[in-house]
Computed example of a mutant assay.
Amino acid sequence: MFNKMLSSIGIGSAKVDAQLDNTQCIAGETVKGVVKIVGGKTEQQIDQIYLSVNTKYIKERDDKKYSVDVIIDKFKITDSLLVKPEEQIEFPFSFVLPEDTPLTAGRTKVWLSTGLDIKNAIDPGDKDSIEVKPSPEVAAVLEAVHTLGFSLREVETKEAPRRIRGRLPFIQEFEYVPRSGPYKGVLDEIELLFTPTGNGQVEVIMQIDKRARGLSGLFAEALGQDESYVRFEVSKTNAPEIQQTIRNIIDQYS
């Protein structure tokens, strides 16, 4: 009885550990691994084992910023089972990493949480960081922007405006500034937002922020009229020519 009481507050209870085959992945790919459970000091009934993909994003209220944890998706590994004292059990798992998982760039972190639902007890858990790499389509855009002389200044995962909010409450913005090339001194910055649309295609929203020129330019900048928003799609078909596409768009709006 005493051991059961201790297990209910997390002392001597079952332990869980998720081990991934690969900690680097691309959104839309299959993540594989195994969940290992080691029984505690007493027999425990586990209602279910689950995995969740998590990240943080920034919210702003009353001019104050704070970070919020959010579950991107959750996957059930197994139903109810009984774990005997010090028993060792393994469950292989696989799931598709959601396509709208943000990249682990800048201060954006993504991690996998493993949990055991145990009635009347503190659920033991495990956290494992994963590195989310860009898809070939997103990588083509980022490489094109870099080749045109832009340098990455900031990546921010923040609360999404309702007009562009999708399944998740946040967006991830990539902010670039022209350090060299044809747009140095012409643009202040460009910002990129990537949204998967399925079938290997990605929609890109690009904000082009022109540098103020003369009094009219300063007036437009003060009113926020120096910013242009352009949408275009990237796929395996047009990815090789995406640098020229981006250059044509910037030339048109700058």
Rank of each mutant, 00 (worst) to 15 (best):
Y57F: 15
I89G: 03
K74W: 06
K65V: 08
D100Y: 08
D62N: 14
P85E: 04
T78A: 04
F95E: 06
Q88R: 01
E86G: 03
K59H: 00
T78R: 03
I89E: 01
V96H: 09
V83F: 04
E99A: 15
R61V: 09
D100I: 11
D69H: 09
D73T: 04
S94H: 14
I77G: 06
K59N: 02
V96I: 14
P85L: 07
E60H: 00
Y57R: 02
S94F: 14
V70T: 10
F91E: 08
I58T: 15
E90V: 14
F93G: 11
D100C: 10
S80K: 12
D73K: 03
V70E: 04
K76D: 10
I77K: 06
K84H: 07
P92T: 12
S67P: 11
K64I: 10
K56D: 08
V68C: 02
F75G: 03
Q88D: 01
K65D: 14
I89A: 04
E86P: 01
K74I: 10
L97V: 11
K76F: 08
T55H: 05
V83W: 00
F75V: 11
I72H: 02
V96G: 06
P92C: 08
K84R: 09
I71C: 06
D63Y: 06
V83C: 05
E99T: 15
T78N: 05
K56P: 01
E87Q: 06
R61S: 15
T55F: 08
E90L: 12
D62Q: 14
P92Y: 08
E99V: 15
T78M: 01
V68M: 06
I71W: 01
K65W: 03
I58K: 04
K74L: 13
D63N: 12
D73R: 00
I71Q: 03
E99Q: 11
I72L: 10
E86F: 10
R61F: 08
Y57P: 02
T55W: 05
D69A: 13
F93A: 14
E60F: 00
S67I: 12
Y66P: 07
I72R: 00
I89Y: 01
V96D: 07
D63Q: 11
D100H: 11
D73I: 00
K59T: 00
D63P: 01
K56H: 07
L81K: 08
V68S: 01
D73S: 06
T55D: 06
Y57W: 04
K64R: 09
L81F: 10
I58Y: 02
E87H: 03
I58H: 02
K74M: 14
F93H: 13
L81N: 03
L82M: 11
F95N: 13
I72V: 12
V83K: 00
Q88H: 01
K76L: 07
I77N: 07
F95A: 11
F91W: 10
K59V: 02
P98E: 08
I58M: 11
L81Y: 06
E86L: 07
L82W: 04
F95Y: 15
D100Q: 09
E86D: 04
D69I: 13
R61H: 09
S94T: 11
P98F: 09
E90D: 14
I72C: 05
I71T: 14
